[in-house]
């Protein structure tokens, strides 16, 4: 909620607000990056889940900054409400040690680090090259949810129907795989 207000404030002013927006972005981004790095480095599984929540919430906040409120709400409901809970179930069911006693990082983590650095270099180079100084529209208004729903139920009707079948079959299959019998 706080983020929403922040964004609202940000939108109503002019030049100063732009600064405020950028400040908000900066703070949230810093939190997200820090949390993301903790997710992949911490040696406590539950902490990792908590940091993941931080990242997901941060992403939701960024969506609001970008005027995509419905997506932000969905993000919070689906990710934080459902997926993270699933993770916690997973942690409990697999009785993973909460911390310390087990190695959490593979021996060849250096390969992973190398890969991600190479990838980051490529991406940042191309992004800067491609979208350089492109500015987002200054008057970003929250997207009307109705427009979104109209799109889903007309243009994107096929994927919408498909995804319902997808969720059903994923549900059925996951139960079969996970069932103890």
């Amino acid at each position: 909620m706080g983020f929403t207000i922040l964004a609202e404030v940000a939108r109503n002013a002019d030049a100063d607000v732009l600064v405020a927006q950028n400040v908000a972005f900066g703070i949230i981004a810093a939190i997200m990056i820090f949390s993301a790095i903790r997710v992949v480095t911490t040696s406590n599984v539950v902490h990792a889940a908590a940091f993941l929540v931080m990242v997901l919430a941060g992403a939701a906040a960024q969506f609001i900054l970008l005027g995509a409120e419905f997506v932000a709400v969905t993000q919070v409901m689906v990710y934080i409400g459902a997926i993270v809970v699933l993770f916690l179930f997973g942690i409990m069911l697999t009785r993973a040690p909460m911390q310390g006693t087990e190695k959490f990082t593979r021996d060849n983590w250096k390969v992973g680090a190398l890969t991600s650095v190479v990838m980051l270099a490529v991406l940042v180079f191309t992004l800067v090259d491609g979208f350089g100084e492109d500015k987002l529209p200054a008057d970003l208004m929250p997207t009307d949810t109705r427009v979104l729903s109209d799109a889903i139920f007309s243009t994107y009707l096929v994927p919408f129907e498909v995804i319902s079948v997808l969720l059903l079959s994923a549900l059925i299959g996951a139960i079969v795989i996970a069932r103890k019998d």
Partner: peptide, 20 residues
């Protein structure tokens, strides 16, 4: 499997770098 994953990501990154 994660080594395979590394091949995948590294392959994608390096190919992308070369072509860029």
């Amino acid at each position: 499997v994660q080594t395979y994953g590394a091949y995948l990501f590294l392959g994608a990154a390096i190919l992308a770098a070369i072509f860029v």
